[in-house]
Design a binder for these strands. Structure first.
Lengths: 188, 188, 188, 188
DNA sequence: TATGAATGAGAATTCATTCAT
DNA sequence: AATGAATGAATTCTCATTCAT
């Protein structure tokens, strides 16, 4: 998009980036601990910036939630992508869904926002699916091509179900129930 | 059941009951619309009572949430119980779980509280399981006795999964995923 | 005032008296513990009567405070009166003031009201003085007649000072300072 | 005193100081009029600041009371200190105690808090004594060295007694009774 | 006359957001 | 662009008092 002449970021731009990163990191931490409804004050305190800086970067509170969410989803999508190549279709599918389950459980503070249904957070599940659906579709197709799973379940349905089941306080339960979903898939 | 010792409720007691019912009904409505964090003001306005009455009946805010939740769970448990007798084991099991899914989806505002993990609402999932587990255990046993489902999945796990999956805005999805769980159960 | 034909109190009158006594006793207890600003609810709970009964007996909140105060003052005045006859003038005077000091300290919850200066409680110090001044005046006169104390300090001043000094949490201090006042009196 | 390291306060710091001063002054006024239990609303209205500012400066209500109290005590302690040098021992002692008496009487609303015994205000009498005891101790020692007063009365006892006696509505009475205490002191 | 449920005004406090510096 | 003090609306909760029974 931009040519090779792209100038190095100025000092000012670096500062801006630093603030942004600090806010994102602080918010991820605070959201995980206290949920998305945590007071802004706590986030800016954790980030070590002023309130004004916060609102400059994220004019709407939901902008921050969205940004954190995307950041997390991106990170998960990247690590999940690698799994596909290393295992048998069903094994890869299972491991991948388990990983998604763990991810949602880990980012616990964001789960309520994702499932809240509030118009403000409408874009959260959309982005979640946007990032994960393609990969899962591939895994499902591969397994279906091998005759191992049925074809009447959409990747989106599966992803929603996994994210709904994921429970941070009980990883073993999460694992068991994701496995049960996969078993359901294998019942042709 | 009603012996001579059971006096009819006095007018006074009826009034108290009316206030309580009004608050419960109003809260159920408001919670479903605006979530459990809806301002008390809205609930008392909807119930047509004063703030003092509210706090007399439910000294802690969470007392109201708990009461509404129990009320709803009781109602669902009652209707669910009837299903068991009318259908074949797996059919009864499926219908029952579907109904639980619809129930959780309907009582939308309560779901986040149930899954919030906050100590205040610790008793919600406990009560949910307390009421539903016995019935589901019977259904599972009947189906297992008929050799139709496996025996390594606990009723509690299933109930948690169904309540996690339930999505108010998409009943069809809820139905599909509950069905997928049952399919998983049938994979012996 | 009423002749010997005075009828025995009716059942109704007895009930009224009982409620009144219960409220007075409960209020004395609660005031001593929580101060005169204690919620009415606590008093009626302690008295075991309804709110309506309370307001029937004491239409103004301050009516109760006044009634309790008078009740206490009366009790103290009665016991104090006896001292005068048994001791030498200065000894009687000292003992009497010490007793008043202990009384005020004991009825601690009422002290702030007495010294609050609020118009509502204007009558409290007045009644206090009304009941105690005559006795103290006599003691002072007797001691003055014996040439033991000076004559330029009024009983009212002394009573106010003693009641101001009285400290419930430190009886020894109260005793010391009342003694110091008496020493002042003896400096002719 | 003011070395080069002491930067002049920034405009921002000045504003903060102004808010603080305004709150302190307003509270002193309101407390004197309506007592320490006066609604916060009245104080912030008088100070011309927002509620948030109030709670920023004094997170706990008692923080404000404490701050006002210390402010007043400091002011009195400063003016009282000067007296010692100008008069004969007993005269200085008398004038000083009279001044303390006037001070307590003037800061009327604070007196109940100081004598309330509530744990919240535990620090009030402590600070009062902390500031006044040393000065009074010196005055007492000087007078005792001159053989004018006795030595068995502690400065703390005296200060408590004076503050208990002080009556805002009757300065003459306060003066008379403080004088009586001093007379007691002189009775060797 | 006693009861106690209901009322609702009022108080404390929090917190998102603005804006002068 | 960053800061953080100030704002003030919004919310929860308390409690004196009323009034139908």
């Amino acid at each position: 998009m931009t040519g090779p002449a792209e100038a190095p970021p100025s000092r000012r731009q670096q500062d801006v980036q630093r603030s942004n990163d600090a806010l994102l990191a602080a918010a991820a931490e605070v959201f995980a601990t206290d949920g998305v409804d945590a007071p802004v004050r706590r986030i800016i305190a954790a980030a070590g910036v002023g309130a004004g800086t916060f609102y400059r970067h994220f004019p709407q509170r939901s902008d921050l939630v969205t940004a954190v969410f995307r950041h997390e989803v991106d990170a998960c999508a990247e690590t999940a992508a690698a799994l596909a190549a290393e295992h048998e279709p069903v094994e890869a599918l299972t491991r991948w869904l388990q990983q998604v389950g763990r991810f949602v459980a880990d980012k616990y503070g964001l789960k309520p926002a994702m499932h809240s249904g509030e118009p403000t957070y409408r874009s959260l599940p959309a982005y979640f699916l946007e990032r994960f659906t393609p990969a899962l579709a591939q895994l499902l197709e591969a397994a279906a091509a091998a005759g191992e799973v049925r074809t009447d379940i959409s990747p989106d349905d599966l992803l929603r179900a996994v994210s709904g089941i994921a429970a941070p306080e009980d990883p073993a339960y999460t694992t068991r129930m994701v496995a049960l979903l996969v078993d359901g898939l294998r019942r042709l």
